[in-house]
Simulated assay, not measured.
Amino acid sequence: MKSRTVLVALPLLLCAGLAHAAPEPPAGAHADHQAHHAAAVPVDADHVRWTPDAPLMAGMRRAHGALERLDRAQSPDREQVLRMAGAVDDAVADMFANCELPTEPDVALHGLLARLMAGAAALREDPADREALAPMHAALEDYPRLFDDPGFPGPASHHPAH
């Protein structure tokens, strides 16, 4: 179990370390930075989608539902945005605590979860930051490309809330 903890923590620590080591982007580069983090995960043409376990399927549906509710809100207020960020964080925490996947899909999943957590953290910092939704949408779009979850809903609407 100890080696699994190291495998789980390593990608997150590397991402955090790289984020802190990166130089501050020049003014006006925020949109480029967001686009970089929202970019789709490259998937080989011969990739056989991994089989998700029940906690993964439930957690990704919860994250998707929270983001979809926020996207559909006409004028979400600060509390709605913070509730959605909290719902995503709860779903991610449950997936970390309960998913049991082989190493390769587990590492890929952590990349998705890191983007969900980053978006939720950005929204907690600034609930009006609609650009924070981009990495979350991208993670939810990448999930069905990586995992064979036939019941997963289609992509969230991508209609920014006004």
Rank of each mutant, 00 (worst) to 15 (best):
R78Y: 01
G17S: 13
D89I: 06
L13V: 15
H162Y: 09
A27C: 00
H162K: 14
G111T: 10
G151M: 10
A21C: 12
R124T: 08
L7G: 13
E141Y: 02
P11I: 06
H20E: 14
D142T: 03
A134N: 03
P23K: 08
L67S: 03
G59S: 12
V92R: 04
G59A: 12
L140F: 01
V41F: 07
H64E: 01
R61V: 10
M60Q: 09
S3R: 11
E79W: 09
A118D: 09
P26N: 04
G154E: 12
A108R: 14
S3F: 09
R115A: 08
A120I: 06
A21I: 04
R115W: 06
D126M: 09
L101T: 09
S3D: 09
D89R: 07
A63G: 05
D71P: 00
A22T: 11
C15G: 14
V8H: 11
D142K: 00
A16V: 03
T51Y: 04
L109W: 00
P160E: 09
P76W: 07
V107W: 04
A156S: 13
A27D: 12
D90V: 02
M117D: 02
A9W: 05
L14H: 13
H159A: 13
L12P: 03
L82C: 12
G86M: 02
R49W: 07
P153E: 08
L101G: 02
E141S: 02
D53N: 07
T51E: 15
F152H: 12
